[in-house]
Design a protein around this nucleic acid. Structure first.
Lengths: 204, 204
DNA sequence: TTCTAAAATTGAGTCAATTCTGTTTTTGTG
DNA sequence: CACAAAAACAGAATTGACTCAATTTTAGAA
């Protein structure tokens, strides 16, 4: 069943994503016209809508790649965390934050976040929620790991704590991408300061 | 200077907001056409754009009213908080959450949040950020109050804690409005569970 | 009251996302 | 190698937010 049709399909998907990614970077999300993406990818406008439900879903495909990379990078930290609760958290969240602007500009993040709240039931909306859940799970996994290592009290409510830490980081990140002049270093400092309160509370 | 012109202006503002609020409720934000809002308000499309920069700003005006009411209601709690850290927090956040769907449907919240991240520099984008800040400040004020009452340790980093609590609640609220079937009672329970960790850490 | 400049209103026109319908390409079968 | 059905494509048509040049209304001076 991997006939001509399937190959052409995969190829067109790739061409559309590549054209869109380039244009989003150059012209911004709003500035990138579907017509232009279509021309660049050498397909028609109608075809793009055959592959993606709407403009947001194209961006969504790009965002998903980015976040999956971050999740992968995070696995290493969970497997081998620094032997100190504060550093462990800082390292994991640091990976999320430092990677974040690798492929995606702040404007692209803003658009992606906006679409995911605007259309939570669209393919991308659901995917984005799933990605958030995966990040939350990874933070929870780190906490479980730290508990196993005897660095975090056993009687701490791990799931609730993981969600709390993720939610705070995520909200800080949203505010960060909303302000074009905001710097990553300051974002990390602010989150560290907030987490210090938690670290003090959960350490053995 | 409160001549005819000023009165007509105020009256048109009111008519536009009323027409929009009704339509947003009935047809949803996306479903409400500017043309229809204009007809209902008995002004032309152009006039609406003379009063508001874009469709989002009309929704913004409605959201601002709602949040300002919530801020007012919160003042009472800050002035006279329950004599127990957990209850004090729960009461204040409870007011925010319980009021939230008074005038605004979940869809309207989703749109408002989306617009505020999409266009952070538009009038509404800036207003929304200011409202978030005001809520954060109010939570911080509660913490300061509880510290003054000797219910919260003096050496706790109040500003960071207030932001942490607000960010977590806000993110939980965002997830809540994204799921049409989510219930307020469950949202509050989940937030209480998260805050329990903090309450344990900051109580005297 | 009459007139003029400033302020506000109007609605037809523009622009870009999305939809729709007819056409072309691919596939599998006889 | 035909051929019919299914899948995918193309691009013109639609839709709805937003703009703008022309017109109308108001304020205040003479």
């Amino acid at each position: 069943m991997s006939g001509l049709r399937a190959r052409q399909k995969a190829d067109r998907h790739r061409r559309i994503i590549e054209a869109a990614a380039a244009l989003f970077r150059d012209a911004g999300y709003e500035g990138a016209k579907i017509e232009t993406i279509a021309a660049q990818a050498e397909v028609s406008v109608g075809t793009i809508y055959n592959y993606y439900q709407n403009k947001g879903d194209i961006l969504g495909a790009i965002v998903s790649m980015e976040v999956n990379e971050v999740l992968n990078a995070g696995r290493g930290v969970v497997a081998n965390p620094p032997a100190n609760v504060g550093d462990a958290l800082d390292t994991l969240l640091g990976i999320y934050i430092e990677h974040s602007l690798h492929y995606l500009s702040k404007e692209m993040w803003r658009q992606a976040m906006a679409i995911s709240t605007q259309l939570p039931d669209s393919p991308f909306g659901q995917a984005y929620t799933a990605l958030d859940s995966a990040l939350t799970e990874q933070i929870r996994a780190l906490i479980t790991r730290l508990q196993a290592l005897g660095l975090v009290r056993r009687d701490i409510d791990g799931p609730a704590l993981g969600e709390l830490i993720f939610n705070n980081m995520n909200m800080m990140f949203i505010e960060f991408v909303k302000r074009e002049e905001a710097r990553i270093a300051e974002l990390r400092t602010a989150i560290r300061r907030q987490n210090r309160i938690l670290v003090a509370a959960i350490g053995v």
